[in-house]
Design a protein around this nucleic acid. Structure first.
Lengths: 151, 151
DNA sequence: GATTTTGTAACAAGACAAGTGACATGAGCC
DNA sequence: GGCTCATGTCACTTGTCTTGTTACAAAATC
């Protein structure tokens, strides 16, 4: 568990969901992600609250896509997850009294803010459909038998 | 301890060291950083190994700057610390078999690689001297009495 | 009413920086 | 030589955050 992999996992799931008609249960999704149904529900909750997916209980229930992949950017998913911390590094003190430390924090914060802005801009410029298309291209390029994913 | 604050702390220390003639002991530095001498020695070890600072034992010992601040960029310090993980987010699986997951990872990795490159480029373009200069400017702008830092 | 499936709380695990105590090593001072 | 100061390093704990897991209530379908 070195990284926060929620964004990666949700993108993975959403594209798979688009390729299936029926609702996917948390258990099916969990198997696909090599994880636990509770983790799935926990992570998908944000997407549901933002209206990207719908969840239904009972027989035949599970998770379904609400929006087409073409109307969801990677940034949308990131935001729906609650905008997790991007960086693992940061200042020792957010409100330091020491002017030296303030200057250091300013310099670091400037650079990090730019990098974060670039990252989010990039995420906002890519739709899930584009990633799905890249996958389709690979799929046809290779033999279909080479494709394996527990879904 | 939300973040890895080693870079921030080391920059802070190095600038302070430049403003003092004598060697600074780990204990003095620890007080300045509100931390522990062992943490200081542990973190400074990388800087010492890279030749940016020198440590001496015994009476009058402690830490001294080897290079002028003008010859150290923020990137140098980052590298000396062992290039810690920049991002808190990442893929769920580094070598996934699933082609969808591969496509997702590629898209994320591209964006993150760009953002990391920008960040490191920015860090490489700023010397510690420039941060020190910014501090000096603030110091003269405000009354000297407003400056307080336990060093 | 039984079964399926989500929703959620509560808690353990794993990772990693940071905090802490103990002790050996080496350098200077008397 | 012996004392003191200071680093070097090991071992262990703490704090924080995502994940993993168990348990159980709530709702929808059969």
């Amino acid at each position: 568990m070195r990284n926060d992999s929620r964004l990666s996992r949700m993108l993975h799931v959403l594209i798979h969901m688009d390729r299936h008609q029926n609702a996917a249960t948390s258990e099916m999704i969990a198997k696909m992600l090599n994880t636990n149904p509770v983790v799935v529900r926990r992570t998908m909750a944000g997407l549901r609250d933002q209206g990207y997916v719908r969840s239904e209980k009972g027989h035949g229930g599970g998770w379904t896509l609400v929006r087409p992949l073409s109307e969801m950017t990677l940034l949308d998913v990131y935001n729906a997850l609650g905008e997790p911390h991007v960086f693992a590094i940061g200042p020792a003190d957010d409100q330091p009294k020491c002017l030296v430390e303030q200057a250091v924090n300013n310099a670091l914060a400037d650079a990090m803010k730019e990098a974060e802005a670039l990252l989010l801009r990039r995420l906002g410029n890519v739709t899930l459909e584009e990633i799905a298309a890249e996958f389709e291209a690979k799929l046809t390029a290779r033999s279909a038998a080479a494709y394996s994913c527990a879904s």
